[in-house]
Design a protein around this nucleic acid. Sequence first.
DNA 1: CTGAAAGCGCTTACAG
DNA 2: CTGAAAGCGCTTACAG
Lengths: 387, 387
Amino acid sequence: MSDARADDAGGAGDAGGAIAAGGAVAAGRAAAADTPAAAPRPTLAAVARRAGVSPSTASLAFNDSGPVAGATRDRILAAARELGYDGPDPRARSLRRGRSGIIGVVLEESLRDAFRDPMNVVMLDGIADVTGPSGNSLLLLTETAASRASLVEAPIDAVVLFGCSPSVDSKVEIVQRRGIPVVSIEGRPLPGVLDIALDNREATRALAEHLRTLGHERVALVTLELDRDRRRGILTGPRIDAATSFTALERVRGAQEVYPDVSGFATLGSTIEEGRIAGHALLADARARPTAVIAQSDLLAAGVIRAAVELGLEVPRDLSVVGFDGVRIDDPAAAGLTTMVQPALDKGRAAGRGVLELLAGGSPQPVSFTSAFRRGSTTAPPRQPRP
Amino acid sequence: MSDARADDAGGAGDAGGAIAAGGAVAAGRAAAADTPAAAPRPTLAAVARRAGVSPSTASLAFNDSGPVAGATRDRILAAARELGYDGPDPRARSLRRGRSGIIGVVLEESLRDAFRDPMNVVMLDGIADVTGPSGNSLLLLTETAASRASLVEAPIDAVVLFGCSPSVDSKVEIVQRRGIPVVSIEGRPLPGVLDIALDNREATRALAEHLRTLGHERVALVTLELDRDRRRGILTGPRIDAATSFTALERVRGAQEVYPDVSGFATLGSTIEEGRIAGHALLADARARPTAVIAQSDLLAAGVIRAAVELGLEVPRDLSVVGFDGVRIDDPAAAGLTTMVQPALDKGRAAGRGVLELLAGGSPQPVSFTSAFRRGSTTAPPRQPRP
DNA sequence: CTGAAAGCGCTTACAG
DNA sequence: CTGAAAGCGCTTACAG
């Protein structure tokens, strides 16, 4: 079981070589090595001057924000065309208006890790869905040291936290003190932060109860990343106590409500390969083998099933497996997974709506989403011991 | 073969219900429905006043950008603490400095579609890798009507185009006229735009030659999305002529260099499911069946292989399949794929470096990456007809 | 319908 | 080491 990162998508490193092709020269900056602002671009004031109007009127013309005579407008637009002016400078506008049209999205991990989880992508899409039409764009911020600075220094109007750990709390405080609204998806509830929650604990309990009803006694957990440590391994009490990932922890708790002494394996995140590694760790020893596995995501579940198959086990005859998310997985082994279907897109949309309401000065209520049990064909009663 | 979107990750829609939980109230804005800027946050000027220094000195203290006596600095910092001032307003700073620290990333499709392709995620990560350390963050912009506006109205210092179609050209022109550097990854070369290229045509030709050498005569293509039409279907001449996706088109051309009359199937994008659909379309009719398929991505290739298996064909005995990208695919069917490995992370990094150099006033040269042939176990000589 | 005035909050030469 | 001055480019009440 390698300790290296499981998936090296792109596997570039040693792949192709880069060749600096000769010829073309870069973006319209001839030889202005010492002039930071290359060509002195025209300003609204210049356009107004040329059109023979005041800057105020020119501004109105460009923003449709007041009554301007047709002829005047034409003159202004013509002047702009002649000068090569394409509209107000966003930086000045955002200072003046107090709004930048940018919403920061704080992800716990690297972009690559975050987007490997389809749930995150779908949620992001949901946020963009709702906030895009009013002219907002999303700024990607990760929890690394460098972008911590950006969280405080970026001109953002609002922030959405993606299941972030407490380590961002201090930065979030600063952001809040600045009057920037904060929305958190599946995070540990924070004061003054609009919470978009998922019933992780209850949903997992439902899965556990399903297994209990089927008669399973020896159940193991395969968890998402528990903390920033990036360590795989047996799920121990201390490990759980030290966990910083609220979502993973809630799901552990839900399982414990049915199986108080449940053990298992902690992975590095939601991928099939991680699930496979966990599966081998849990299933290798035939004598200590669980009869059912609660995986904290569908991808992990798919990996566990693959490991089971590799070990010659049949699902669900020899092993029951449940997942979480309800994502359509491109893996035959995971077809028909018993799982909880969570409304990821709706979660993203709710977060987006929350942002918009907060920005409008409203006081939106926290929202709580529930997952739906979907019984598939990966769970069955345990086989009688030594038939 | 359904015409609906192949993958509905999150499958939310009908999944869980939202319940507005009572209780908590949103981010520190009590009852300021009419005051856009809720709490009047302290400014640098206020801090300076309280500390008994000039704004200039206070600014220097906060930016470490000049010599400030230790005692003075302490006084300023203390005043800031008392007032709850956490640093300069990013909007004002960016107007004054002419830099926002934001790099726009323009994606051709919805976020969800774009991030379904692991290559895009890895490239994004590469850009962030290189640009993040100097305090830059990435702003996600898609080609939809709404965010076209953002491309022009967002306070971005530079733009990276992700294989964008000509439809963005006009907006890009405006951006360029503003003096904003533009870098394009695998795009149709545009004047004044720094080009980060991949040898799509040559790489595909190499794959085609590999098949030709093996003896294949009846070869079919499975392409990426050719245009914004979102239509699947047989790859026809007119369809190719109307294509707007430079990458897909270059890969078609590379295949044509070896198989001038090559036909095939156009998909909606790089997913296993799309490949599967294409595979069924191409392989269903045993009499018209190709002996080899050139899929324009590994994911598509995996889908084709799955379709082949479903039709009772054996790869590579009955059908050879090649992919593109060199991504590690979590699908047993695609293990050992013959493909071209492209350096996606390096492409992203090169784009990031290009942005940084352009921002520094330099004139970076275009960069051209090459893919590496990786022979797997999915290609073999064609079976003799009717043995 | 148009203009003069003020100011968003900061940073940067430039003097001292 | 510190301060006075100017200005980044725009928008918004407010008069007219």
